[in-house]
Simulated assay, not measured.
Amino acid sequence: MITVVVPRMNANDESCTIQQFHCLNGQAVRSGDLLATVETSKATIDIESEADGYFLALVRESADVRIGDNIACLFETLEELHAFRETAAGAPARHDSAGYKLSHQARDFAELHRFSPEELRSLNKKLIKLDDLEELLRRKGEKQAERIALSKNQKQVSRTVTASYATIPRAFLLMKVYCDDMLRELQLLGEKLEEFVGFGEVLPVMLVPLLEEFPFMFGSFQKDESFLPAVKVNVGVTVDAGAGLYIPVLKHADLLRVERAVEAMTEYKFKALRNSFEEADLLDGVITVSLNTNPDVVGVLPIIVPGQTAMISVGAVMKELVLADGAVAERRYIHLGLAYDHRVVNGHYAVRFLTRIKEKMEQFRAAL
């Protein structure tokens, strides 16, 4: 017997959902045949057979499983498969230590509505089914508002944020950056390329030359208290088109020419709208840019993605009045933030890094 396990598909997801099995129980399969499709918070992954055999699913479709769980088996013969099923069917049911057992649907329903053990025992049943709990809920006359389930994508955001706050001692720096010249150049560049060009398209390009000067901003803190620097600058950029937050990664090759970076970001925005990211789109980032440019957003304190050292945040374009040659004039600026891993980077280093970005933005034409 060969077990089929859920492989690790990225650094963040610890669980996934069985979207579909592509084989019937008892069906003969060959090495390389498609067995199942699983869905993570970010993408769908196909699992192929590693050997010839007869297929048997161990979980149902739509089930949530953890990375490393057995979801199916392959048997050399049908006789071996049937013997396995008979043995499993004859195994005695395991009752909960509380004196009852919940069906899969009932367990999910009980967790959703927070039934206490006392309430469940009050049913006086060895096996509690969904119908029993629905009746119990009706009798309780529950007045609470119905809970709203979080999307898989938002659950993954929750896990990433929790891991960041729990494991990365971060510091934060905020700078004022004047951007009139940059905004004019971005508009001209957008007209030339016939695409929208904003901070998310060009700021990653401006980071590439800084790798050699500021290596500690591009890499990750290691368990042995060393630092692993990045070889290439792959920049994650936050994208939220209303279907959830994603951080697709602009690869180093895309950042060598601003035209290619604009093209790649346009493609990522369409993928965000359609929720059609591939796993490779979201991997290998070494630093991240958080875009928060909605009107009146003064500044944002971003997290640091686990496995990275820093995240840069961009706030909304603001305006102020200044005296220019004795006359009142309007000037535009943004707040540029930097959250950095204080185990690796100290304040002086962070100030130098953010100052270099500020200089590039305020002298944008020369920087490009």
Rank of each mutant, 00 (worst) to 15 (best):
G26T: 07
M311E: 12
S158C: 00
F277K: 05
V351P: 02
R121C: 12
A91Q: 15
E142I: 09
H95D: 06
A110T: 02
M265L: 11
G242D: 13
A310D: 05
I128M: 03
E191Q: 15
L78H: 10
G198T: 02
A83L: 14
L189C: 09
M361R: 07
F216C: 10
N275E: 15
L150A: 14
D132F: 06
V314K: 13
R147W: 05
Q19F: 11
V258K: 07
V208Y: 00
S158G: 10
K125I: 04
D254I: 00
L74P: 05
S15G: 02
R139G: 01
K358C: 06
Q20Y: 03
V286R: 08
N294G: 14
Q363G: 13
G337L: 08
H104R: 13
R114D: 13
N234P: 02
F172W: 15
P295S: 10
V177S: 11
V300G: 00
A367E: 06
M1F: 00
L368T: 14
K126R: 12
T288R: 02
E39P: 01
V197I: 03
L130T: 04
I334E: 15
V249M: 07
T162S: 13
D254S: 13
E76V: 00
V305L: 14
A63K: 13
N275V: 09
L255Y: 00
V4G: 05
S164G: 07
R85T: 13
R343Q: 06
E86F: 08
F221T: 00
P92F: 08
S31L: 04
L74S: 04
E119R: 05
A28M: 11
V231A: 11
V297M: 14
H342R: 15
L173E: 04
R30Y: 11
S122F: 11
F221C: 03
P169Q: 03
P302T: 05
N292G: 01
A28V: 04
L78E: 14
K269T: 02
I304L: 12
L173T: 03
R356Y: 02
P248L: 06
V4A: 08
G219H: 07
R121I: 03
R331C: 08
Y333V: 04
I304Q: 11
K42T: 09
A11Q: 10
K101M: 11
A316L: 11
G236C: 09
K155H: 05
A339V: 09
F218G: 05
S276A: 15
G90Y: 01
D33P: 03
A36E: 02
R147Q: 15
